[in-house]
Structure formats: structure tokens, C-alpha cells
């Protein structure tokens, strides 16, 4: 009896060890790919396998990073873009959810508005950029609007769909207790749609970056999008690639934060 108990423990230990080994392998390959990619890039650029003027090199980008970081201009651009992206992301998501709630509230309203939503959703929102900039002025307000507008309609459609998909028997349970429509929304519809809302948050992280970067292209005053378009105009592709890497870095962080939020909100 005791023997089998300790044998079972051994088996469990072996299982845990196997998990750890597997995890280490995955990390190893992730880091390897990263290293190989950047070393190969550096090498290819130095040996002129690729055009160094166009594709730059990690070492050049790193030098640029040191220079920009020490003169402080980098932080200013990052600040501006991050602020615009986060604001656009939050406004777009919340307005989308609010609109979905309104559609849910009135079935007639949702039926009336349906074809317009479909068209608006299909339309490439960045094409509205010039109009937005003229209407709201060439500043951060327009750029935030671009970051928001790009995700608002798709959020509305996806979340409204989730609102409708809840098993109507949950509503029946609440109604049999005398719940009003508002209470049904608060107790059942809204919490049941949390997973969908979180997954649309994840999509919106990417979308609002697109909106904001395009907005900065157009307004061309400051921010990471401006650095890209400026680098393009003066043919400094080190600057372009550098800005891209910075954007990738912060987009990844935003995504991680949303995942943390997901773990916190959805336990059951």
C-alpha cells in the first residue's frame, strides 16, 4: 500500500518534470528564432545580401535607439502615440458596447439600423481619415477619433450578437422572479457576454493601432506614425524600421494587459 503510494508520487513527479522540460524547449526555440532572425538580418545587411539602405541593420537601429533615447525625442513620440492609441481603443470599445446595448434594448431600433451597420462595417474606415481631420482639426482629437472609429462598428456587431445568443431560459428565470428588462441586462445578458467582449478587446488592440498610425501619417506632426512617414520621406529606413519595432513592442504589451484583464474577469 505504502509502496504504491510512493510509486504514484514518483509518477507524478516524472509528469511534472516532463512538463517543465517541454516548457523549456518551447522557450528555447522562441529565443532561438529571435536571435537567429536578428543575427541573420545583421549578417545579410553587412554582406550586402540585402540592400542595407532599404533594410537597414539591427546594429544601426540600436544606435538610432540610443541616440533618440538620450535626446528625449523618442519618449515624446511614444507618449503621444500611446495616449492616442489607448484613448481610441477605450472609446471605440466602450462606445461599441454601449451601441450594442441600445440595439438590444430596442429590437425595432436594431432592425431599422441593421443595413446601415452592415454598410458601415464593410466600408474601410481609414478612408474617412481626410474628412475626420478636416472636421476635427489636424490634432490628436482626430487621431483618437480614427483609432476609435475603426473598432466601434465591429465591436457593436460582435457584442450585439453575443447579447442575442444567451439562452433565453436564463431570462425566463429572472423574469419569473419579477425582474425588469434593465435587471435582466445587468444580471444575465451583460455578464454572459464577458468572454465575447474580452475577445473583441483583443481584436481592438490591433485595430486601434492601425487607426492611430494612419491618422498620424495624415496629420504628420508627431508620434510613431509620423516618424515612419518622415523616415519614408527622407529615405531613412532605419527610422522606419525602428518605429515599427517600437510599435510592435508596445502593441504586444497592450495585448498582454488585455490578457491579464481576461484572467481577472473570467474565472467561471
Amino acid at each position: 500500500m505504502k509502496n504504491t503510494e510512493s510509486a504514484n508520487r514518483e509518477l507524478h513527479k516524472a509528469y511534472v518534470r516532463k512538463l517543465k522540460v517541454e516548457q523549456r524547449w518551447i522557450r528555447f526555440w522562441q529565443i532561438s528564432i529571435f536571435m537567429i532572425f536578428f543575427s541573420f538580418w545583421e549578417l545579410a545587411s553587412r554582406l550586402k545580401w540585402i540592400d542595407p539602405l532599404l533594410f537597414s541593420a539591427p546594429s544601426k537601429i540600436y544606435k538610432l535607439f540610443i541616440a533618440k533615447a538620450s535626446d528625449g525625442s523618442l519618449w515624446m513620440h511614444i507618449n503621444v502615440t500611446l495616449f492616442e492609441t489607448v484613448a481610441g481603443f477605450i472609446i471605440g470599445t466602450f462606445a461599441g458596447i454601449l451601441l450594442a446595448a441600445m440595439l438590444w434594448w430596442s429590437t425595432r431600433f436594431s432592425k431599422i439600423i441593421d443595413p446601415y451597420l452592415v454598410i458601415l462595417n464593410a466600408m474601410p474606415k481609414v478612408a474617412l481619415g481626410p474628412i475626420i481631420i478636416v472636421a476635427l482639426g489636424p490634432g490628436y482629437i482626430s487621431i483618437i477619433a480614427m483609432g476609435a472609429i475603426i473598432s466601434i462598428i465591429i465591436t457593436t456587431l460582435v457584442v450585439y450578437n453575443a447579447f442575442q445568443e444567451i439562452d433565453s431560459n436564463y431570462i425566463k428565470v429572472l423574469q419569473s422572479m419579477g425582474a425588469s428588462k434593465r435587471v435582466c441586462f445587468k444580471e444575465a445578458i451583460f455578464p454572459a457576454s464577458f468572454p465575447t467582449m474580452i475577445s473583441s478587446l483583443k481584436v481592438n488592440v490591433g485595430l486601434s493601432w492601425v487607426g492611430v498610425i494612419v491618422g498620424e501619417f495624415l496629420v504628420s506632426k508627431q508620434g510613431l506614425g509620423y516618424l515612419i512617414i518622415y523616415g519614408f520621406q527622407v529615405f531613412d529606413f532605419t527610422l522606419v524600421l525602428f518605429s515599427l519595432l517600437v510599435i510592435a513592442f508596445f502593441a504586444a504589451i497592450m495585448y498582454q494587459l488585455v490578457e491579464k484583464l481576461e484572467k481577472k474577469l473570467i474565472k467561471h
Partner: peptide, 30 residues
């Protein structure tokens, strides 16, 4: 409605509420 207790074919407990929160749903609504 408050004078009737309706129990459906399946339990329809709200998965994101604890058992106690589920049980106190009626008093919460009223």
C-alpha cells in the same frame, strides 16, 4: 410573480455567480 417560484427543466444556475449568489437572486431582484 414574486408569489410564484418557477423552476425550469434544467437548473439554469448562473455560472459566474456562486451558489449562494444564485440562491439570493430572487431577494436581490425584489
Amino acid at each position: 410573480k414574486a408569489h410564484m417560484g418557477y423552476m425550469l427543466q434544467q437548473d439554469y444556475l448562473f455560472p459566474w455567480k456562486t451558489i449562494k449568489e444564485n440562491i439570493m437572486l430572487g431577494p436581490k431582484i425584489n
